[in-house]
Amino acid sequence: ACPVSAASRSGQQIWESFSQCFTPAVREVVEFAKGIPGFQELSQHDQVMLLKSGTFQVLMVRFCTMFNPEERTVTFLNGQTYPLSTLRALGMGALLDAIFDFSEKLGTLRLEPDEMALFMAVVLVSADLSGIVDMGAVEQLQEGLIRALHSLIHCRRPDESASIFPKLLLHLPDLRTLNNLHSDKLLAFRIDS
């Protein structure tokens, strides 16, 4: 684990380091996807298409759990911790504001870890379906996961499920908007000769 970047690091070094944080996070989403019941029964082509269009959105949900509101820092999977001020200095201000707004809204639902995990599975299989070959199989998987999420929330919070579940589903278009607005942000990787 690395501590918060020292003041002596250049902006370029911070940008490279921050860019590299995404690599283990993306790999974790791939492993997570493989654990979703039914995901690996899709064709490899469709698995790849769902991951390519849905990973950013899953990362945004994941990001909410990596954010420390008291310290105003974000800790990535490789242990790197960044204060928000550092991330803003990288030019990520608009993306950060959007993620924090989203985190606040999602935070009000107070999801348990298993509810959050099932929600992330729904997010992944509900991403942009253009390019999917077997639409029927993906839609069947979507419906199964959405039913499971509804069932889990209803069993755990029978008095609240009528309000929480629709609010959860309303986050799906928010995530697609975040993806469309921000996934073209630039990262930088140093290539050593």
Partner: peptide, 25 residues
């Protein structure tokens, strides 16, 4: 001098996913 490769977050995600599936084939 250091050389840098610049890519979008979307392209980086796509690259990692392609790499992962190719490695596991």
């Amino acid at each position: 001098p250091k050389t840098h490769r610049v890519m979008t977050l979307a392209d980086h995600i796509s690259h990692i996913i392609t790499q992962d599936f190719a490695r596991n084939q």
